[in-house]
Structure formats: C-alpha cells, structure tokens
Amino acid sequence: MPKTSSSSPAVPDTMWLGHGRHLGPSPEQDVRRNLIALQAAGVIDGFLALTPAEAASSAVGGLADPFDGEGGAPALDPSARQVFEARWRVDDEVTVRAQLTTYESAERRKHGEAVAWVLAAEAGRPWDPRWPSPATMFWPDSDSTEWDHDAVPGPRLRLTHRLPEDDKEMRRLLKECSRQSWSVHVVIHEAMTPDARGSRPVTLFLPPGLRHRVVEHRASPEQSQIVNWALKDLRVHVPRGGAVVLPSTPAPPGYDADAFSVRNVFLDGTEPTELIEKIMAYAALPRALAPEAGQAVDFLRRRWHLLTPEEELDRARGLVGRYAEALTAMAESRDAYREEAERARAALASAGAPGPAGTPGTSGQAPSPDGPARSGFTQVFGRLRDAAKRPPPPP
C-alpha cells in the first residue's frame, strides 16, 4: 500500500484547488471575455483583473494597510503574468471567492506554447461538488479553448487520455501524475475497443464541481499487463476491464487500493455508477496541501481585493480600530519611557552626581534606556510613518 502522511497540512474543506496549462495564444484574453460574459448574464457578481504589482498590494478601495507586513504577507512568484478575482454565490446565500493566476512557464519560454495557471476558490462553508466548477467561471467551457491541460504534460481534464504505447514512458507519466498533479487520476482498462459512446469520458457523469479535478487515462485492451507493470511503484492494480483511482504521493489517510478499484467498467455510454462513487469517495478524503497550493490559499485569503461596499466599510472600520490601538500603544510607550527617565534622574540625584552646571542630581540630558517601552514606541511609530510615506494606489 502507498505510504501515507499526516504531517503536511490538509487542504481546507472549504477550498477548491486546481492547476494546469493553457496551450492557446491568448489565455488572459480568454479569461477576460468569459468573465465579462458571465457577469453580464448574472452568473457572477463581479470580477477584477490585476497586474502582479496590484495583486500583491495591500491597498484596497484606495486605502493601504500599514500593518500588512506584520504577519509575513505572501508575495507572488516573479513569473506571474496576471491575477483575476471573481465572486459569485451558490445555493443563493453562500459566497465563493476565487483567484486565478497565470504564470510564464519554463515550457513557454522554451517553446512558446504553454501558460501555467493556478486557481484557488473558497466558499463560506464546506465545498459541495454539486456546485458549479470554478474552472468554468474563468475559462470558457468549450473544447476549442485549450486551457484544460493538466500540470503534468500530456493529459487533459475534459477528455479521455490514451496512455503512451511505450512502457517506460507510461510508467514515467503515471508516477509524475501521482507525485505532481493536484487532480484525481483514474486509470481504466478497456476490455475491448469501445464504440463512440464508450469512448466518451466517464467524467461527464461526475458532479460539476469534480469534472475539472479528474483526469481519465485509458489503457487499450492489449495494454493490460504493461499498465500494471507501470503502476507497480504505486502498489495499485487495474483489473482487466476494470479501473483504479490512483493515490497521490503521499497517499491520503484512509486510502486502500482495493477499496478504490472497480472490477468491471462497462464502456457503453451508460453511467458507471460504481466507478463514479469511488472517484467521489476519493475526492472527499483529506488531501495534503502541496507547497504551491498552500501559497495559493494564503494569497487568496490575505490578498483579496474584490470587496463589496459593505466589506470595504468593515475593512476601513477595522483599520481605524487598529490605528486607535497603535496610538494607544504609542501613548503608553511614551508614558513608560518618561517614567523610566524620571526614575533614572532620581537615581542620579540620590547618588549625588553633579550635573553639567554643577547642580547636584541633574545631568545635561535625559538617559535613553534601550528598554521594551522605547522599542515598542519606535516600532509602532515607524509603521505609521512608513504608511504615510507610501504613495497612493493607482486609480
């Protein structure tokens, strides 16, 4: 059985995460057109298109947050091209906030082909796979736009993917899918060559929120032994004419290869009920949060700019409260520093130390203790001073 790990943080149950590659010439234009159309149709409440510099800024609604650096706020990868934010509602009352970031990939720089993308969406309650896919809120739900290539070169998210004929290439691909992809990967062995109906992706039977998180691999009838040899390192087995849901690396807690395999999948165009149940059960397991996914979650939660007027007002009130706390802390630090200085003068006076003018118990200048009160005063004052010097955000 594949090794499991509980040391890594898990994906929050309110999150939908995806990443992939766009092979077309104008990915950002495809996103922008789709968002404009969906907003006009009332599907989404609103959206923003931000440059990397704008996305990384803490200025929202023209108001900068001078306390932003206190918690190590996340920064965008230098290869980021653009960030899109969108907000919509599900079940009439649950708000979903999502960010899509496009990146200049090494492959594109080398071949001029693919743009990488990362999508993070969070709802106000645990994610329901019956909700609309966040992918189709940003990307057009059309086969003519090639946004749906998995992050691992080769497979696509909305189509069946034929496994390579070369056994070593097949083995390499399946290992990479297990280790690098955030998608759920399913391997189906065809007992016989299916007709047109059986060639359609079984992922079409999944609920909308899962369709763009699953990659379907197909092994031809003659690849039965080869595919199981290729899966040997993952310690899973595909029954002849059946299917198996591949584990990620590390495997999620509760994964058992036998529990996520299906002995028979009838590829005749009807719903493969048992396989769909296995895929949904696997997708519901706790998943380890990959480092790149963790950055996307952090950025979504702490660099969100698409606020409603009510949210902007709440944010402004929060900043006012924090300013008041900072000013109170400055006043307390000033008073504490003054008391320390007076105690120091009193100590000098009791020791009979002459001041510069010959007056006992005085000195030419107050001592400057380097204690915590002074440190707190200067730190808070420095933050407010830096915030005042910060240029206003672009209109």
Rank of each mutant, 00 (worst) to 15 (best):
W229Y: 13
R385S: 01
A388P: 04
Q295P: 09
S220W: 04
V320T: 03
P134V: 05
T249W: 13
V262Q: 11
P247D: 06
P201S: 09
P252L: 04
P153R: 14
S105Y: 10
I44T: 12
I36H: 07
I188P: 07
L100G: 08
R301K: 14
P250I: 12
D141V: 00
V31W: 11
D13F: 06
G376D: 09
D13T: 10
L48W: 02
V184Q: 11
E325W: 14
P12F: 09
A75W: 10
G124N: 05
A284S: 06
W182I: 13
A219V: 03
R179E: 09
W16A: 03
D256T: 07
G69K: 02
V152W: 02
L23N: 10
Q39R: 14
R317A: 05
G198L: 01
K110G: 01
Q225S: 09
A366G: 08
E340D: 14
L231E: 10
H185M: 07
P392H: 04
F260D: 11
R343C: 15
P52V: 01
H111N: 03
P291W: 03
E169R: 07
R197Y: 12
P395C: 12
K175M: 05
G69W: 04
R172F: 10
R109V: 04
P395S: 13
Q223I: 03
D258A: 15
H149W: 08
D298R: 06
V227M: 06
V320L: 04
R162C: 00
E271C: 15
M15P: 04
A37D: 13
R385F: 00
A41N: 10
R32K: 14
L384K: 01
R197E: 15
G364E: 05
G321C: 15
A316N: 10
S248T: 12
L119F: 08
A55C: 09
A331G: 05
A86W: 03
V96Q: 08
A284L: 01
A41L: 12
W88T: 07
P140T: 11
K110Q: 10
R130E: 13
R179C: 04
A120N: 09
E310N: 02
G24F: 05
L306K: 15
A388R: 01
G154I: 02
V265Q: 11
P309C: 00
V90H: 13
T308E: 08
A98T: 05
R109Q: 07
G321F: 09
P252T: 04
Q365D: 03
G364P: 14
F299S: 11
A257N: 10
E325N: 11
L174P: 08
V115R: 02
I276Y: 11
R240Q: 00
P208S: 09
D148P: 06
G376K: 00
T193D: 05
A326K: 00
D233F: 06
P247G: 02
V83Q: 02
P66T: 02
W304H: 15
G318M: 13
L285I: 12
E85D: 09
P286M: 08
W147A: 01
T160N: 03
N228Y: 15
M330S: 15
P25M: 13
G124T: 03
G382W: 12
L246Q: 00
L210T: 03
S5W: 06
D30E: 08
R156F: 00
L348A: 13
T308D: 03
S26Q: 03
L23D: 13
G18S: 08
T270S: 02
S333M: 13
A316P: 11
